[in-house]
Amino acid sequence: MPGGKSPGRKPRVALIFGGRSSEHGVSCSTAGSVLRALDRERYDIIPIGITVDGRWVLEKDEPERLAIQSDQLPEVDEKGTAVVLASDPGAALVSLDPTAVPGTLGEVDVVFPLLHGPFGEDGTLQGLLEMAGVRYVGAGVLASAVAMDKHYAKLVFQAHGFPVTPYTVIKPGAWERDRAACEESVASLGYPVFVKPARGGSSIGITKVSKPGELVAAVEKAQQFDPKVLVEASAGKAREIECGVLEGLDGGRPEASAVAEIRYDTSYDFYDFEAKYLDDEEHVDLQLPANLSEDVTRRVREMAVTAFEAISAEGLARVDFFLAEDGTLLLNEINTMPGFTPYSMFPRMWAATGLDYPALVDRLIQLALRRPTGLR
């Protein structure tokens, strides 16, 4: 069977990380944490980095090299031996050392795609793996693409009856063709608004806009990362709530983690990239479990699982909410490959639920090994 393990050896797991998106460094950091947690007695590990220009290279199994050092994000080593994944079902990695004949690195039983952002988390890599008949951790092509595009994720969630923050979309070319219409659409939301790349993550390229005169710079900043821009109304003083979801074992319903809340002081206008990855927690307080009533906690967990099912997600996801002062829960977004260091919210929520980091990594690989490729 394509992607199946040959008898008499351990499952071979290929970690793929880095990538062409602006979240390259975050992905590398995530990979370092997963490498550190993987049990070498149970799995053979092949670390594969994708450089910022899209080349696949064989990386060293050195987790410490991929850690964030003094606010410096790690990068894939561009000098590594080039590798390719055979496109025909059979799941073999081939090395392309220019000084030697191309050699097969062996079958791959499962890929753990640790890419964040476009060109990896958005269904593109998942489609390649489906074509090659390789099992992989996480959501499939459709769910990955929908979750990555915040515009279409909102459309799906609205169709399922979820309340979302009011928004408008500035599509590629619309800003140049009719800027006045775009500005009018944004003004209808009321200021302040948040301007963000529609298909981005880690809060990169996001700007809080408090008045019309700040809009142009914010849109142009977002367009540096994505020609499609999403503008959302502010949720005001709403609390930021998160919940993790894991695919159920043996076909059971997805499971929800303990619920967390993100709180930050006036040093930040919102939970931006620096607050997520570089802050020493002096200004950011991650409350786990969140100080919520039993009823709100129950609703968050139920909505998180329903959102997971609404986009046909698999494996894992982090679901983010706004809790308004009147108790209304707004579904903000779903992330099918959330930050995955031991200090990231998703693993921390599951640790609080009773599943520690190594066990979480192992469960995701086992889920992927059980799942076939193709239509399911």
Results as ranks from 00 to 15, higher is better:
residue 141 V to M: 08
residue 142 L to K: 01
residue 186 V to Q: 11
residue 25 G to K: 01
residue 117 G to K: 01
residue 43 Y to E: 07
residue 225 F to E: 05
residue 342 P to Y: 03
residue 94 V to C: 09
residue 213 G to P: 09
residue 82 A to H: 14
residue 29 S to K: 00
residue 114 L to K: 07
residue 23 E to I: 05
residue 269 D to T: 09
residue 52 V to K: 15
residue 298 R to H: 14
residue 38 L to P: 05
residue 13 V to E: 02
residue 161 G to K: 14
residue 119 F to S: 11
residue 251 G to N: 07
residue 210 S to D: 15
residue 201 G to M: 01
residue 40 R to S: 12
residue 202 S to C: 13
residue 155 L to Q: 15
residue 65 R to G: 13
residue 373 T to Q: 14
residue 281 E to W: 04
residue 316 L to G: 04
residue 105 L to R: 05
residue 20 R to Q: 14
residue 264 Y to R: 02
residue 147 A to I: 00
residue 189 L to F: 12
residue 254 P to H: 03
residue 299 R to K: 15
residue 95 S to T: 12
residue 237 K to Y: 02
residue 67 A to H: 13
residue 362 D to C: 11
residue 133 G to L: 07
residue 261 E to I: 00
residue 321 F to K: 03
residue 18 G to I: 04
residue 65 R to Y: 08
residue 44 D to F: 00
residue 86 A to Q: 14
residue 120 G to C: 08
residue 277 Y to L: 02
residue 326 D to I: 03
residue 58 L to R: 13
residue 344 S to Q: 09
residue 333 E to P: 03
residue 192 P to S: 03
residue 311 I to V: 15
residue 283 H to S: 04
residue 17 F to M: 12
residue 206 I to Q: 06
residue 277 Y to H: 15
residue 110 V to S: 06
residue 208 K to G: 03
residue 204 I to S: 06
residue 31 A to G: 10
residue 83 V to L: 08
residue 142 L to A: 13
residue 171 K to A: 15
residue 327 G to E: 06
residue 63 P to A: 12
residue 348 R to C: 09
residue 17 F to H: 03
residue 22 S to D: 11
residue 25 G to L: 05
residue 356 D to C: 05
residue 241 I to V: 13
residue 85 L to C: 10
residue 257 S to Y: 07
residue 72 Q to C: 12
residue 332 N to S: 14
residue 236 G to I: 06
residue 283 H to E: 00
residue 235 A to W: 01
residue 159 A to N: 14
residue 230 L to M: 13
residue 177 R to G: 11
residue 370 R to E: 15
residue 324 A to Y: 00
residue 76 V to F: 11
residue 62 E to W: 10
residue 288 L to D: 03
residue 101 V to E: 14
residue 192 P to M: 06
residue 278 L to P: 02
residue 181 A to E: 15
residue 135 R to I: 03
residue 321 F to T: 06
residue 147 A to E: 06
residue 150 K to P: 04
residue 52 V to C: 11
residue 266 T to C: 04
residue 242 E to M: 02
